[in-house]
C-alpha cells in the first residue's frame, strides 16, 4: 500500500470574523499516525476537515503528496472533478458515523465503489464483503445501520473508507459517540490499520491511543498549533504551560 504525506503550511481559516485556524504548520509523514489533541473549540475538526477540503481554508497551503488540495494555485479553486479525484485517496471517519440509513452495511461500503470507482455491483459487493470481514463484521453485512451497535456502525464506516483503498485516513473523534465498552473494538481496527502502514490523522480524546499508537502528537489551542512532538514528549514531559494545563484537567476529569 502506498501511503500519502501531508504538508500543511501557514493555513488560516475564518468563520466570518472568527479566526479558527491561525498560521497552522504541520507535517504529516507517510505511513505514520498523527494524533491531534486539544481543548474543545480549538480547531482540531476544522483542521482535519481542511485536509480533504470539506472545509475551505482561506490562505496557506495543504499539499497531499505535493499536490495542493482545493486550489489549482493559491487563491484559485480547483474543479469539482479534480477535487473528487483527490478525495478518492483520502478516507474519512466521522464522530457520528454518518452511515446511510437506507442501505445495508454491505451497500454502504459498496456505494462508493460503484459510484466513484465505477465497479460493477457484484464486484463492489464482493470487495465490500472483504472490507467488512476485515473489520470483523462478516456476519452483519445485511444489517441496516439501525440494527447495528454504535461500535459496529463505526466499523462499517471504517470499512466504507478503506474499501476505496485510500492512502490517507482522517478520523474525527471516532470513538467519542460510543459507549465505553464499545471503544475498544473500534480502536483495535484503527491499530490494525496503523500497523499496516496507513497514514492516519486522528482527532481524539483517547490519550491512551495517542500514547500507544501515535508516532507524533500535535496539540492545538485557540486555532493555533502549539506543539508537535513524540507522544512521550507531549503527554509525559510537556514543556508548554498550555499543554500542561490541558493534561492536568484531563487527568483530573479521568481520575476516579
Amino acid at each position: 500500500m502506498q501511503a500519502s504525506s501531508v504538508e500543511i503550511s501557514k493555513v488560516n481559516k475564518f468563520y466570518g470574523p472568527f479566526h479558527a485556524l491561525k498560521d497552522v504548520d504541520l507535517s504529516i509523514p507517510p505511513g505514520k499516525v498523527t494524533c491531534l489533541i486539544g481543548p474543545s473549540g480549538s480547531g482540531k475538526s476544522t483542521l482535519l476537515r481542511c485536509i480533504n477540503f470539506l472545509e475551505a481554508y482561506d490562505s496557506g497551503e495543504i499539499r497531499i503528496d505535493g499536490d495542493l488540495i482545493g486550489y489549482e494555485v493559491p487563491g484559485k479553486r480547483m474543479s469539482g472533478r479534480r477535487l473528487r479525484e483527490m478525495r478518492r485517496g483520502i478516507g474519512m471517519v466521522f464522530q457520528q458515523f454518518n452511515l446511510w440509513p437506507h442501505m445495508t452495511a454491505r451497500e454502504n461500503v459498496a456505494e462508493g465503489l460503484i459510484r466513484v470507482r465505477g465497479m460493477s455491483k457484484s464486484e463492489a459487493e464482493s470487495r465490500a464483503g472483504e472490507a467488512l470481514t476485515k473489520v470483523g463484521l462478516a456476519d452483519k453485512m445485511s444489517n441496516h445501520p439501525s440494527r447495528l451497535s454504535g461500535g459496529q456502525q463505526q466499523r462499517v464506516a471504517i470499512a466504507r473508507a478503506i474499501a476505496m483503498e485510500p492512502r490517507l485516513m482522517l478520523f474525527d473523534e471516532p470513538t467519542s459517540a460510543l459507549d465505553p465498552e464499545l471503544v475498544g473494538e473500534v480502536l483495535n481496527v484503527m491499530k490494525t490499520l496503523a500497523s499496516e502502514g496507513m497514514t492516519m490523522v486522528v482527532v481524539t480524546h483517547e490519550m491512551g491511543f495517542a500514547a500507544h499508537v501515535a508516532d507524533q502528537v500535535a496539540f492545538m489551542e485557540k486555532g493555533e498549533l502549539v506543539g508537535v512532538d513524540s507522544p512521550d514528549r507531549i503527554l509525559h514531559q510537556p514543556q508548554d504551560p498550555r499543554i500542561q494545563a490541558f493534561l492536568r484537567t484531563y487527568h483530573e476529569r479521568n481520575s476516579i
Binding site: 470539506l54 473528487r84 478525495r87 474519512m92 466521522f94 446511510w100 466504507r160
Partner: peptide
C-alpha cells in the same frame, strides 16, 4: 443529516 451528505462527498461522490 448534513453529515450523511458530507460522508458521500468525502469518498468522492459527485
Amino acid at each position: 443529516p448534513h453529515g450523511q451528505i458530507e460522508a458521500a462527498r468525502a469518498i468522492g461522490m459527485a
